Amino acid sequence: MGPVQWGDVPTWVAAIFAGGAAWFAYQTIKSQRQQISEQRQFIADQSTNLQLERSALHAAAEDRKWSQARQIRMHHRQAGVITDGQGNAVGPDHWEVTVQNSSGAPVHEVDVRFGSAYLAAEVYEVPSSAVHGPNPGERTIRPLHLLGAGRVIRFVSQHWSASTVHNNRPQLLFTDDNGVQWALDSYGKLEEAPAEGTP
C-alpha cells in the first residue's frame, strides 16, 4: 500500500474556505433566527401593551360616561292614606319621587314614569333643603327640560288604589350633559336608556 494522497494545496484552501463559508452562513442564519424570534417577542409584547392601554382608555371613557349619571339621586316614597269603610288605613294612595342633581352640570329632559304607562300628575321645583320634606316648591311642567347642578325636583303620581301604587314603581328618565339617555329604577339600577323610537 502506498502513501495517502492528501491532494494539492489549492484543494485544501478551497475546502477550508468552503467550510468557513458554511460556518459563517450557519452563524448568519442562527443570528437571523434569533433576531426574528426577538422581533416576534417584541411585537407580541407591544401588542399586549397596546391592548392594555386600549382597555385602560376604554375603562376611563366608560367611567367618565357614567360619572354624571351616578350623581343623580332619586328618593321615592309611597304617600297618602287610603282608608276602608271603618276609617282604617289600608295603604298609601300615591308616589312622591324627589330627584336631586348632585353633579356639577345640568341634566335634561327629566321625567318619571310609574310602571310602564303612568306619568306624573304634578311636578314641583323644591329647594335642596326639602329633599325629604313636603312639597313647598313651585309647580312646573313635565318633562322638566333642564335641571341645573344642585337643583331638586319632585314628581307626584296620580292617586290610586293601594295595589296600583304597589304595582307601579317609579322609574327616573333623564339625559346627561353629554346627550346620553339614562334610566334609574326604584331599586337603584342605573342603565343607559335606548333613544326614543328604538326597540
Rank of each mutant, 00 (worst) to 15 (best):
V112G: 00
Q71F: 03
K189H: 11
W6Y: 14
Q71I: 02
N178E: 08
T11P: 02
D84Y: 06
L144Y: 01
G85H: 10
F17K: 14
A21W: 11
G104C: 04
V123F: 06
A89L: 09
V180G: 00
A18K: 10
S161V: 06
A117D: 06
Q86C: 12
Q32T: 09
S186N: 11
N49K: 06
I36D: 15
M1D: 10
A105T: 07
N168M: 05
R40P: 02
R151I: 02
E196I: 09
E138G: 09
P199D: 12
I82E: 11
V107D: 02
V90Q: 13
N101D: 04
H108Q: 09
Q86K: 15
A14T: 15
I141A: 06
D8I: 06
I43Y: 15
L144N: 01
Q46K: 15
G188S: 06
P127S: 07
Q41M: 11
G150H: 09
W12K: 09
A120P: 04
V9F: 14
A21T: 13
F114G: 01
N88I: 13
G133W: 03
S161M: 09
P127Q: 07
Y187V: 04
R139Y: 07
T11G: 14
R139A: 12
P143H: 10
Y124E: 04
A59D: 15
R142V: 03
G20D: 11
R169E: 06
L184A: 01
L147C: 05
I153K: 00
I36N: 15
H159P: 03
A15M: 12
Y26D: 08
V131Q: 05
T83N: 14
P170M: 08
A130V: 06
F114T: 02
